[in-house]
Computed example of a mutant assay.
Amino acid sequence: MNHNRLFHSMMSYYSGDPKRIQHFIKVYHFARMIGEEEGLDGDTRLILETAAIVHDIGIRNAERKYGECGGKLQEKEGPPEAEQMLTQLGYNRPLIERVCYLVSRHHTYTGVDGPDYQILLEADFLVNLYESGAGREQAASACEKIFRTSSGKRLCRTMFAL
């Protein structure tokens, strides 16, 4: 499936906020790369890639409502926004439900129940480590504690020269 309409919707949603736009585009590309290398089936890859695009959709409402956008607030505020956008774009109900579940847990590192969930965590972590200016020690710790896929571990080790 071509995600261009969803990318454009998310870019409009975050119009004027290039940092957020750059973030979800990078997470999408890492998720896609890991998903392909790990051999995910087409349906699971579609869910993963869709979730990667909308994973941080809760930030804007969290900032408006609470004046901050910590991970748990993103998880709380994201699913209704993701559901609305994906419904408007014609995505099917089972996909929307799984994507909303992933959005509601993308900062929760326990109870991972599928490769789409694991890979979303890894892709987001790769980008967050870089964007936060993490050093090698932080990256090594994350690589050891969070990463489970061989592709994600390899990317983390390569990016941070571990």
Rank of each mutant, 00 (worst) to 15 (best):
Y91H: 14
G111S: 02
D17W: 06
H107R: 10
I53F: 08
Q138E: 15
F147I: 02
L40M: 14
N92D: 15
V27W: 05
F7N: 12
E38C: 02
E131K: 04
I96P: 06
Y91D: 14
R93F: 09
E83N: 13
P79T: 06
D41P: 01
R5T: 12
E144F: 07
K65E: 13
G67R: 05
K145I: 05
I34P: 01
S9V: 12
A142W: 11
G58V: 03
P79W: 02
L120F: 01
M1I: 13
V99T: 14
K65S: 12
Y109S: 00
F125R: 14
S104V: 01
L126C: 05
P94Q: 11
I21Q: 08
V27C: 04
Y117A: 00
A142R: 12
I96T: 10
A51N: 09
N61Q: 14
R105E: 00
E81W: 07
C100R: 12
N128S: 14
E77S: 09
Q118F: 00
P79Q: 10
A51I: 04
T110S: 09
Q74W: 04
R157A: 15
L48Y: 06
I47P: 01
L121I: 03
L48F: 03
L95G: 08
G39S: 14
L73V: 05
H23A: 05
F125Y: 09
V127W: 07
L102N: 03
E38Y: 07
F147Y: 08
V103M: 05
L46F: 12
E81D: 11
T50A: 14
L95F: 11
H107G: 03
Y13L: 12
E144N: 11
S12H: 13
G78M: 06
Y109C: 00
A123Q: 08
F125K: 14
A51V: 04
Q138W: 07
L40P: 02
H106G: 01
S15D: 15
M85Y: 13
Q84L: 15
G152P: 00
